[in-house]
Design a protein around this nucleic acid. Structure first.
Lengths: 105, 105
DNA sequence: TACATATTTGGCGATTTTGCCAAATAGAGG
DNA sequence: CCTCTATTTGGCAAAATCGCCAAATATGTA
């Protein structure tokens, strides 16, 4: 594997890593449905605001979401809808695993 | 967010985390093309065999790949082809980011 | 200006991840 | 049985991630 390929996989990994957390997956799921402000997300998630804010900043630096300030509040939006396709793939993997475990019994 | 939802996002995150490493993304990419043995992957990646083996075990426990022993060698295969869709989504995110950076200039 | 609310940032301890080495395990062939 | 090759596992130190608290910042309002 040459340097160029290595760089490509690292770039991809940066984005996948940004998604690799239950709270961040929840945020993406929610934003796919509708844009939401930090305070609302914080309430839904039930963690410290600073924690939620940091998760948002991870998603934003990865280019997955964008923000828009309105008054005192900051609304976050999904930048690309294809994130949902990723979810359906993941669900497929989970279903496969469950099926297989049933077959073993 | 209730306990059931929380569990669902954690299950998803386990799988996304399994993909969240450049070497593991490379392995998935390669296996999508053709099944490959550990020794071959190790050579392509250029890391210690034990390192590659551990990466493979991460992908396997997540249910993303499966192995098949043939003689002394172990061949790994993709368990679901939809991983490639994830890649195309990721590429889209990367392209969006690049476009936007160009617009800023 | 002073105050209240919303959000981000700095920092810290705790946990997890990563990659290498060394050692253990497994199968093929002499 | 012994040896060689392929692979996995145990263990450890370095690096990254996580979540909370405290403090800083920003904005709307009295």
């Amino acid at each position: 594997m040459n340097a160029k390929d290595r760089a490509r996989y690292e770039a991809r990994a940066r984005i996948v890593k940004a998604m690799a957390h239950p709270t961040r997956l929840f945020i993406l799921d929610r934003l796919a449905e509708q844009e939401t402000c930090v305070c609302e997300l914080t309430e839904m998630i039930g963690a410290d605001v600073s924690t939620v804010s940091k998760h948002l900043s991870v998603l934003k630096s990865a280019g997955l979401i964008k923000d828009q300030k309105r008054g005192v509040q900051v609304y976050y939006q999904l930048r690309t809808p294809c994130v949902m396709k990723v979810f359906s793939c993941i669900e497929g993997v989970i279903e496969n695993s469950i099926k297989e475990q049933l077959e073993l019994v």
